[in-house]
Amino acid sequence: MRALLSLALWFAVWEVAGRLQLSSIVPPFSAVIEAAFTVVPTEKFRGAAVISLRSFGIGMALAIAVGIPLGILMARARSIGRILGMWVNIFVSAPISALVPLLMAVVGIGETTVVVTVFLFAVFVITLDTQVGIDHADRSLVEMARSFGARPAQLYGKVLILSALPEILAGLRLGAIRGVKGVVIGQLLVAIIGVGELFELYSNHFLMEEFWALVIIVFLFAFAVSEAIALLERRVEYYASNR
C-alpha cells in the first residue's frame, strides 16, 4: 500500500514536470504510458523483445549451467576453491561492461556478444553464492548421509544442494538482475540488435515518450524476474532458519 502510494506520488510529480516542459527529455508520464501502448504491438518491438529474451535466456542458462557446478566444485575441492576464489571475487565486483568492446572484437558484433555479456554478468555471483551455500551446508547432515551409506550422487542430490538452496536461489536472483543489465548494456554497445537498437533509435530521433516507455518495460521485466525468484526463496526460507 505504501509502495503504491509512493509510486503514485512520483508519477504525479513526473506528470507535472512533464507538463511544465521543464526539460525536453522529460515528457509527461501519461504520454509515456500512451507511447508504451503504441510501441508494444509493433513488429519492431516484438522482434526486439524476442531477440533480447533469447539472449537473456541463453546467457542465463549458460551462467547457471557453469556457475552452480563450479561453485560446488570450489566448495568441495579446497585447492580449486583457493585458486579460483580470488578470480571469482575480482570478477564479481569488476565492471564487466568494460570488456564488451573486447568481446565484440573477439566474437563479432551480434547476438553472441550479448549472450556472452549476459553470461559474464551473471555467472560470478551465481558461482560465489553456490560456493558459500555448499560451504555452509550442515556438516552433520553430510556425516549423517555418509553414515547411512549415501553414494556421492546421493550426497549431492539429496543433501548438499538442497541444503545450499537458499544461497543458490539468492545467487540466481542477483545473477538474473545482473543478466538483465547485461542484455541492455550488451545490446546498447553492439547497438544494432534488440532492445539496444530500439534505445538507440528512440534517442537518436528524440522520441522521448517511446524511450521512457521502453525504460519502464525493461525495469518491469527485471523486477518481475527478481520477484519470481524471491517468491521461490521465501518458500525455502525455513531451511535457513533451521540450520
Binding site: 525455502v236 525455513y238 531451511y239 540450520r243
Partner: peptide, 11 residues
Amino acid sequence: FVFQDFALLPW
C-alpha cells in the same frame, strides 16, 4: 548412528 545435534533434514 544417532547424532548429538539430531542431523535431521530440515526440508
